[in-house]
Each structure stands twice: as structure tokens, then as C-alpha cells.
Amino acid sequence: MGLSAKESEILCTLERDPCVSTGQMATMTDLSEDEVKGIVADLKQRGIILRTRSVINWEKAGEPLVTALIEVRVTPQRDVGFDALAQRIARFPEVRSMYLVSGTYDLAVQVTGRTMQDLAMFVAGKIAPLDGVQGTVTHFLLKTYKEDGVLIEGDQQPSRLPIAP
């Protein structure tokens, strides 16, 4: 189930820049285009490449999203532990990411919506009343400093000398 060196190189490259063309990927990895296509198809089929998406600064686009991190404490159930309840919560489209965590609560749930009201209603109406949910704490995100590995910077990056020996 381990990765070959070429698979690993393709994955790292795609994670950095999913828009690399097949031709360019072939050049970069010393493979043929067909080989690249085959490897990428296989990685998708194996569920290793899940999805390609853009990291967007919605706030800058003038259409800010409201995001909240919700701590959920739950009672594990016999035989299925946390999984059954976790999957019920995860299926809501408002839930963007979700994790089982160690510490003072059990599930870390990231939800997004258009308004704070939307999210408050979602937590109060859909999550809190579920059987097995003992309590929730909602943290609204106020400012994004880094998103998916990308720094949200105000300042411009300094530039290099255009010509240097």
C-alpha cells in the first residue's frame, strides 16, 4: 500500500499546484503523459487523491463566509463508539471538516455559513439536540491568518533584484 517514488513526487507536485498540465508533469517526473495519466487515475481510484479545490480568500472577494469551530462532547455508544454519531454530524453540508480529538471534548467540527445567525441556528437546531450529544461550545472565527498552508498576508512580499550575477 506504500507509494512509489514517482507516485510520491506526483502527489507532492499536485498538492502544491493542481493546475500542472499532464504534459508538464510528465516532463518534471521523467514519465510519459500516459504514465502520468495512469498514475493519477490510480491514485484517485485508491482514494488517495480526494478532490482538487482552490483556496479562496472570500473576505477579500467581498463575500465573507462565517466559520465556526464547534467543540462537541458526546457519549460514546456501545459497539460503535463515536463513529455512528460522528457520521450523522459529518453528513450535514454545513460541516466542512470534522475530527475526533483527544482532550476535554470529543469532536472538533468546523462549520461554515453565510451569517452568524445561520450557524447559531444550525448548532442549536441540528447538533445540540442529537441523542448522545452532551454539550457544545461554539467559537466563531474572527480573522484568518493562514488557510490551508497559505498565509493571508496584508503586506506585499519583497521582490528580488531582477538582474543579479
Partner: peptide, 25 residues
């Protein structure tokens, strides 16, 4: 230096892609 005149030219231009650098990006 053979590259000094390029500095002067570059200073007056916009939209230049530089492959003339000598350091990591």
C-alpha cells in the same frame, strides 16, 4: 559589469519576467 545597462532598462519597464536573477525565489 556587463549587466549594469539592463538595470537601467528594467527600471523603466513593467510586466517584465526576470530569468536574470541569481538567487532562490
Amino acid at each position: 559589469s556587463g549587466i549594469r545597462k539592463f538595470f537601467d532598462l528594467l527600471a523603466s519597464m513593467e510586466g517584465v519576467i526576470s530569468l536574470g536573477v541569481g538567487e532562490p525565489d
